[in-house]
Simulated scan of single mutants.
Amino acid sequence: MERGSSRSTPVSRGLFVLSRALDLPIQYAILSSRALGAPLINTLGGAPISPTGRPVYLLGTNLGLSPQRAILFGMAVGSFVKQSHWVLAIGQEPISPALAAFVGAFNTLSNSINTLLFTNAATSVLSYPSVGLDETRLPIQTLVGIGMYVLGMGLEWVSEMQRLKFKKNPRNKGRPYTGGLFGLARHINYGGYVLWRAGFATAAAGWLWGAAVAGFLTFYFTKRAIPELDEYCGKRYGVEWVQYKRSVPSKLLPFIL
């Protein structure tokens, strides 16, 4: 990604949206009665869970998914909408076709791992004793996962919209954005991403998987992405960035990290 450039890359952005859109039929096929992931689960020695429970209706349309499965599919849809909006309306820097394809594939892989773990009896949140494979009941893991997902999406989306509004004002050219949600943590949009990704994982496969996803993403952002961005911002904004880091010590989430 070319930081600081505003060169137009419509083909790459279109490829990104297309790659993200292709994720939705894949997730639906894994979660629905088509059981796309069942052969893989069987090959790995698992036991696929067959869909049960009354299907959810949305605007009079039968989704063909139980409440549990509809929630996970809704999370996949939400990630597609958010990321497509970012690449079409928020992101200002150019992206290459290779990066667009990679990010699309990474998100599809992440979503697929979640839905496959959910549809495998040994790893699904449905395997918890409080649920006992009953898809009409929502375990605490799913409810907590929903909360994390909504909060994370809100933090990431709102913070990026706030920063975009700041950047569009010509008077702010060459200045770092330090207000709004970015006044709580310097990379709170990354923190929001960690939250909703971990929430998705928790709702699908429980506490351990949710913690593993959160740990992996936190490690990546704090050890690679944030240091690279800090170096760039330090060179571009100089003293203003140094002062910002002093006044806002949190990197990802306020009072946590």
Rank of each mutant, 00 (worst) to 15 (best):
R20H: 15
L252W: 03
A47W: 00
R186T: 04
I256E: 08
Q83S: 10
I226F: 09
P254K: 01
R137N: 11
L24N: 05
S112M: 09
V11T: 05
S112H: 06
G60V: 06
L99H: 08
S84L: 09
F221T: 06
A203G: 15
A76T: 03
A198R: 01
R13T: 04
S250A: 15
I30V: 07
P55C: 03
K251E: 10
G183K: 09
S250G: 02
L116D: 06
L59C: 12
D230F: 00
L40I: 05
I256F: 06
V56S: 00
A21E: 03
R224W: 15
S6H: 11
F200P: 12
L88E: 10
R224Q: 15
V17L: 07
A38W: 08
I226N: 10
T108I: 07
L257K: 05
P48T: 03
R13S: 00
P94L: 01
P249T: 11
R3Q: 15
S127P: 05
A47P: 11
R197W: 06
I95L: 02
S5T: 09
G199Y: 02
A101Q: 02
Y237A: 12
A47Q: 14
A212K: 05
P67L: 04
S159V: 06
R197M: 07
P48H: 04
P39I: 06
F216N: 11
E2Q: 13
L22M: 10
R171T: 14
W209Q: 01
N172F: 04
L72I: 00
R236V: 11
P227S: 12
I41F: 02
G191M: 00
G215K: 01
P227V: 09
I256A: 03
P67K: 04
S79D: 10
A29K: 00
A29D: 02
S127W: 03
G152H: 00
F16H: 01
Y128D: 13
L253I: 14
I71P: 01
L24F: 05
L195A: 01
R20A: 07
T222R: 13
F166W: 14
L126D: 05
S130H: 06
S250Y: 06
A101K: 09
R163C: 00
E2D: 04
L126F: 08
R13P: 02
T222I: 15
A70L: 09
L59G: 09
G154R: 03
R3I: 12
N107Q: 12
V87K: 00
P39N: 01
F73G: 05
Y190L: 13
K82C: 10
K173Y: 15
L36Y: 00
E228Y: 02
W241T: 14
A204V: 04
T119V: 08
V103C: 03
K235A: 15
A214K: 04
L126I: 06
L143C: 13
Y193D: 11
P227T: 12
R3H: 13
L253F: 09
P254E: 07
A198E: 07
C233W: 05
R186W: 08
G154L: 08
